[in-house]
Design a protein around this nucleic acid. Structure first.
Length: 538
RNA sequence: GCCGCGGUAGUAUAGCCCGGCCAAGUAUGCGGGCCUUUCAAGCCCGUGACCCGGGUUCAAAUCCCGGCCGCGGCACCA
């Protein structure tokens, strides 16, 4: 075996490829087949082409993070796979404990568009209150719900002692309940004084399922809703609103995270009262980025109390990933790769980086920068002035730029980490340009002498190849590198062509890593004074 | 505590429903090599896993039972 490996390794890549194609085509074929299979999501149960309706139903209390994106991407991909429709529905029926964030509606739309998700219909639940009231009334008429005017402790007492079937409010007639319901709507009750409960199995093994609350009173004069203000005081709970809307909107398949699994059970009671058919539910686990804060409330606290921006690159929000130079396609691929298992998935950033690299590599221009720059004085250059034309990418045609080096002496900059490794007598190649021999290394300064021009010469001597920056027109650059919850800032000088970079572009700083241009700061004369970048990955 | 859902290499995932083709596939990571004006990409080789214990069976990652561990729910939150 080892010999065979040696033999194959001795061949050039072209020869290897040819051999593979000619003699072992079946191997390639098998590999191709597998690669195709892996991209696909498992089929959706009971799905008919053209009839699938999915929904993504976020609470607009914060922007989306990668965990939320899982539900969004899966809902969208399945709808697309079956040529169906996807609905975006804002679930903002709690103006008290989960106060919606007024900007979040639009920020979430932005996040979704960034992910490449297009929805066919959009609803805001706080604008559909009358719809919920109508269904509630119908439910009461059918004897499927009752108004409970007892204090919560009383209810719990009956529920937990197995006497729920004999709970007095539960025994009320639909007529009585309708009357109480109207009183609720009219404002006769204050917060906590009355709720509407759905009748379930009073002996259900899960106590939380027993006669769950469909509507409660929220005093919106104290906590107004950002969209409808204090117009309503009776508010549907999540379970009621979501269940009603899923039916009314014709949702056929619900893709929901595991924390909602119990809710399916609750909602089914409502459906059976109303004679509705419950959609197919697919439950999946949580998706988190290793070592990153994923809890919405914790993120929100950071934003509100510590003034952390919603797109701070240390966060796991979608806009933070975008700012780091992560392509939406990478997020999508990762989510599809993780699939719909019920187990939680904890993805490492390295993994996301790898997917992103494969997307971004072919279109990221290569730019040289000296991080923590150290001047290198080069003497004995056999020219007055010389230009090197350097392509922006080693194998893809992304254009090129010129680098100018004066003579017979010139000052350049190299990275400190490279300078530190230099010893007098070493020959080193300045990438894409020429070779120098180190004369002396003294503290913050390297003196070198022109050695030769050709790459072959550098190869022959096993000279290291390092990136460099001409001293004139070098562009100061600052790279923000998230490290856990810290943010390291690397400072350096980039080659003059970096002044042409546009905000949002992802480039590869040669031998350093991929980074996204976050800001281009200009002086009064329009010259670029500084480039701020955010580090993506190596 | 009660209810529910899970446990395949460091991570993620395929296989489990319909037991044998699985001495377990893939991606990423890690180690080595080739290639290459980048420590990027590409190519080759290697590394590494069926939670534990019983049972059923000619045969179990796959079925059954028990245990352990993890996660979720137990709100007038979503």
């Amino acid at each position: 075996m080892a010999e065979v490996v040696k033999e194959v390794n001795a061949l050039s890549p072209d020869e290897q490829r040819r051999l593979l194609e000619e003699e072992y085509a079946w191997l390639l074929e098998r590999r191709r087949r597998r690669a195709e299979e892996e991209k696909r999501l498992p089929p959706l149960p009971a799905a008919e082409r053209g009839k699938v309706v999915t929904r993504f139903a976020p609470n607009p209390d914060f922007v989306l993070h990668i965990g939320n994106a899982r539900a969004a991407v899966l809902s969208y991909e399945y709808a697309r796979m079956y040529e169906g429709r996807m609905i975006l529905r804002f679930e903002d029926t709690d103006p008290r404990t989960k106060q919606p964030m007024p900007e979040a509606y639009e920020l979430i739309r932005e996040d979704l568009r960034w992910l490449g998700i297009r929805w066919d219909e959009e609803y805001v639940q706080s604008l559909r209150m009358e719809v919920f009231y109508d269904v509630a009334r119908k439910l009461i008429e059918r004897g499927g719900a009752y108004v409970d005017t007892e204090p919560p402790e009383k209810f719990r007492e009956y529920r937990d002692s197995g006497n729920l079937a004999r709970y007095p409010p539960r025994l009320r007639s639909p007529e009585e309940n309708l009357e109480l319901w109207d009183r609720m709507l009219e404002g006769h009750f204050g917060e906590g004084e009355a709720v509407l409960r759905v009748k379930t199995d009073p002996a259900h093994p899960d106590p939380s399922v027993r006669d769950w609350v469909a509507c409660r009173i929220i005093d919106t004069s104290k906590t107004p809703h950002p969209i409808v203000g204090d117009r309503y005081i009776v508010w549907p709970t999540y379970n009621f609103a979501a269940a009603v809307d899923d039916h009314l909107m014709g949702v056929t398949h619900i893709l929901r995270a595991r924390e909602h699994a119990q809710n399916t059970v609750k909602q089914q009671f409502l459906y059976s009262h109303l004679g509705w058919r419950y959609p197919v539910v697919i439950t999946f686990g949580r998706l988190k980025l290793e070592g990153m804060i994923m809890s919405k409330s914790a993120l929100r606290r950071l934003a509100e109390e510590r003034g952390v921006r919603l797109d701070d690159p240390r966060l796991a929000t979608l806009r933070a990933l975008r700012r780091r130079g992560i392509d939406p396609e990478a997020v999508r691929r990762l989510i599809l790769d993780v699939g719909v298992k019920q187990t939680d998935a904890s993805i490492s950033y390295v993994n996301l980086a790898s997917v992103n690299r494969s997307i971004v590599d072919g279109r990221a221009r290569r730019v040289m920068a000296a991080i923590d720059p150290v001047p290198m004085l080069v003497e004995g250059l056999p020219w007055e002035r010389k230009e090197f034309e350097v392509p922006y990418h080693p194998s893809v045609d992304l254009g090129s730029r010129r680098l100018e080096v004066p003579g017979p002496t010139a000052t350049l900059y190299v990275s400190r980490s490279d300078a530190r490794a230099l010893r007098p007598g070493d020959v080193v190649r300045l990438m894409e340009a020429f070779n120098v021999e180190v004369v002396e290394v003294r503290g913050d300064r390297v003196v070198a002498r022109f050695h030769s021009l050709s790459l072959e010469e550098a190869r022959r001597r096993g000279a290291p190849i390092i990136q460099w920056v001409p001293a004139s027109d070098a562009v100061p650059v600052e790279v923000h590198v998230p490290e856990g919850f810290e943010l390291r800032v690397d400072r350096g000088l980039a080659e003059p062509a970096a002044a042409e970079l546009k905000v949002g572009e992802v480039v590869q700083l040669v031998r350093y890593g991929f980074a996204r241009v976050d800001a281009v700061l200009r002086g009064e004369d329009g010259r670029v004074e500084k480039l701020v970048m955010v580090y993506a990955h190596d």
